[in-house]
């Protein structure tokens, strides 16, 4: 019989991660072995795994092209519908056209990329310095009077040289233009984050709305909206020097940040440990060491659920069958 306990949610999550792991084309024999161990651990694990298989079966034996087309298409129209409901005007075909143009012209430059956990400094022709944060991908097209970047993934920091030429940066949601400014840009799932450290930067969202962001200010934007934020965070630039700053930061927020630098899969903070707070500078060079340090200073356990899924839990309150 199924009883819904808080524990079940956790097991659903573990099962979902195992599923994603096993479906990967490069799943290793060790991972399969580790999954088997997890599966045999409890009847709840087995029951939930059957549920996973039931879900997955519903996506099998469908006419592939047809079903994909329908479900993909409805997902897209749903978004426009929801935006419409919220009273936002969306000129989808025009935006799409612009994006195509950007892709065609701006993908022409050199491509720079970093691995998870890697931070790299790149010198441009005019002396401007570019830092690429963990797990990032950018194209750089250096022309005589203009340099055009396209950030496709991750985060970068620009430190302009004196006499730097104008710079344009495309992100998935709009464009950033600057002359001689220092700023950082991070691409998230559904918006872009811009922080200006020195000078000023103009943001133009795909919808055409634009704003000038001054030094010590930051802004979030997507294709239709621009929202100014309060000031800057130390973490907008500390990564350039290889560390994360926790200024009385909640553990769940810290782990979410650290996760971006963790090369061995995913890090997650369990809800029962999220309220603990951290202070200090933590080196990004070795995320496992950071986890050890946290386990040393706070009452938390670091548990590896799968080789690439690590969870931090309150060790006063372990609830696992």
């Amino acid at each position: 019989m199924t009883t819904s306990t808080p524990n079940k949610e956790q097991v659903l999550e573990e099962a979902a991660y195992w599923f994603a792991c096993l479906q990967s084309e490069d799943v290793s024999a060790q991972e399969k072995q580790a999954w088997q161990t997890w599966h045999n651990q409890s009847s709840l694990h087995q029951e939930v795994w059957q549920q996973v298989e039931r879900v997955d079966r519903q996506y099998q034996n469908l006419p592939k092209q047809h079903s994909y087309h329908v479900l993909h298409q409805t997902g897209r129209s749903r978004r426009q519908f929801l935006l419409g409901m919220m009273g936002l005007a969306v000129a989808a075909p025009i935006v799409w056209q612009q994006r195509q143009d950007i892709q065609a012209t701006w993908l022409s430059g050199e491509t720079e990329t970093t691995q998870v956990g890697e931070v790299r400094q790149i010198s441009l022709k005019d002396g401007t310095q570019l830092w690429l944060n963990t797990d990032s991908l950018v194209t750089i097209d250096q022309q005589v009077h203009l340099q055009q970047f396209h950030l496709l993934r991750g985060e970068l920091f620009v430190e302009s040289a004196s006499g730097a030429i104008p710079l344009q940066l495309a992100t998935g949601f709009g464009q950033v233009s600057a002359i001689g400014a220092n700023f950082s840009v991070r691409l998230n799932e559904d918006h872009t984050y811009l922080a200006v450290h020195q000078g000023s930067v103009t943001v133009t969202a795909d919808s055409g709305s634009h704003t000038k962001v001054q030094a010590k200010q930051s802004v979030l934007f997507n294709r239709t909206n621009l929202s100014p934020l309060q000031g800057l965070s130390a973490n907008d630039e500390a990564w350039r020097r290889g560390y994360l700053v926790a200024d009385n930061m909640r553990l769940d927020e810290f782990i979410e940040l650290l996760n971006r630098y963790h090369p061995n899969g995913w890090l997650k903070c369990s809800a029962n440990a999220s309220h603990y707070r951290l202070v200090g500078h933590y080196s990004l060079a070795d995320t496992e060491k950071v986890l050890d340090a946290i386990a040393f200073s706070l009452p938390v356990n670091v548990r590896k659920i799968t080789p690439w899924f690590t969870i931090l839990e309150d060790n006063k309150n372990i609830s696992h069958s």
């Binding site: 599923f19 994603a20 996973v52 879900v55 998870v116 993934r153």
Partner: peptide, 19 residues
């Protein structure tokens, strides 16, 4: 235009949502 690690996360996220 994302990393493979992100794809894995998306798959897990979607499966969790279905469950």
């Amino acid at each position: 235009e994302v990393s493979e690690r992100m794809v894995k996360k998306y798959i897990a996220q979607a499966m969790l949502q279905c469950l």
